[in-house]
């Protein structure tokens, strides 16, 4: 989430031309070019704090965003967490809890199979960009859970996520994938910079009893539906 405005590209081009042929030096180098280095003497504060502000030169770099850096003025990132998932076509209506990563670096999946986990370090449903990821166990000790039905979903199926604030974010299924876990590109599944989407993930394929895992991930992608 960026708090700045990009500098217009044209300004950068202007500078690049003006500075053509510059040599590069080690990162973080600063060297005095004036006759006297100002660090040798304290800034005469009294003489600087008065006077009338004037625009004295063209701003070749365009507008520069300036803000207070005080911790008291820090932007508080309020996240409207998802709390409920509904997929009518599959009779799915389940609660969502926020989850992080386990000690192996994998996404935490809620206990049992009746609750979906939302990856809280990624985008949230309703965010302007990025893929919000929900995952649930395909089964529990009693049998298969709601997400076991995900592999039967069809394109166009309606998906609704309700958030803590009560907002209902609507999606439509656009893609159903079943991929060997070894080949799943998790960076793409969790891509925080991609177009906004809801991604529902569970397991599928052959049960590999010797390792206690399924061979595949079932990955259903849904795109936001604009409600007029």
């Amino acid at each position: 989430m960026r708090w700045w405005r990009p500098v217009p590209r044209v300004a950068v081009v202007t500078l690049a031309v003006a500075l053509g042929g510059c040599v590069s030096a080690p990162v973080g180098e600063a060297s005095p070019t004036g006759s006297g280095r100002a660090t040798d003497e304290p800034v005469p504060a009294a003489s600087l704090s008065s006077g009338i502000d004037e625009v004295t030169a063209p701003r070749v770099l365009g507008e520069v965003e300036v803000r207070s850096a005080s911790p008291a003025d820090a932007e508080v990132v309020a996240v409207d967490e998802p709390t409920r998932l509904e997929v009518d076509a599959l009779s799915i209506d389940m609660p969502i809890e926020s989850v992080g990563v386990d000690e192996r670096g994998g996404m935490v999946i809620p206990e049992g199979a009746l609750t979906a986990g939302w990856y809280r370090f990624g985008p949230a449903p309703g965010d302007p960009a990025g893929r919000a990821v929900l995952a649930a166990h395909v089964d529990n000790a009693q049998g298969t859970g709601p997400f076991a039905r995900l592999r039967d979903i069809e394109r166009g199926a309606a998906v609704v996520v309700t958030t803590a604030s009560g907002e209902r974010v609507r999606y439509e299924v656009v893609e159903i994938e079943q991929t060997d876990k070894d080949e799943v590109d998790v960076e793409a599944v969790f891509d925080a910079d991609a177009a906004p989407a809801l991604v529902m993930v569970t397991c599928g394929g052959d049960w590999q009893a010797e390792v206690g895992h399924y061979a595949d991930n079932v990955i259903v992608t849904a795109a936001p539906v604009d409600v007029p």
């Binding site: 989430m1 960026r2 708090w3 850096a69 005080s70 911790p71 820090a74 990563v101 192996r104 670096g105 994998g106 996404m107 999946i109 990856y119 370090f121 990624g122 995952a135 649930a136 166990h137 395909v138 089964d139 529990n140 000790a141 049998g143 298969t144 997400f147 076991a148 876990k181 799943v184 998790v186 960076e187 599944v189 969790f190 891509d191 925080a192 993930v201 569970t202 397991c203 599928g204 394929g205 052959d206 049960w207 009893a209 206690g212 895992h213 399924y214 061979a215 991930n217």
Partner: peptide, 28 residues
């Protein structure tokens, strides 16, 4: 005083999604 700046880097995605533990949904 304190000043705070934030710079977006990028966090790696989780390494895996292991979402089944009992084999009831076996397709093999």
């Amino acid at each position: 005083d304190l000043a705070v700046q934030t710079v977006d880097v990028h966090a790696a995605a989780p390494s895996e999604v292991q979402a089944g533990t009992y084999g009831y949904a076996d397709q093999g």
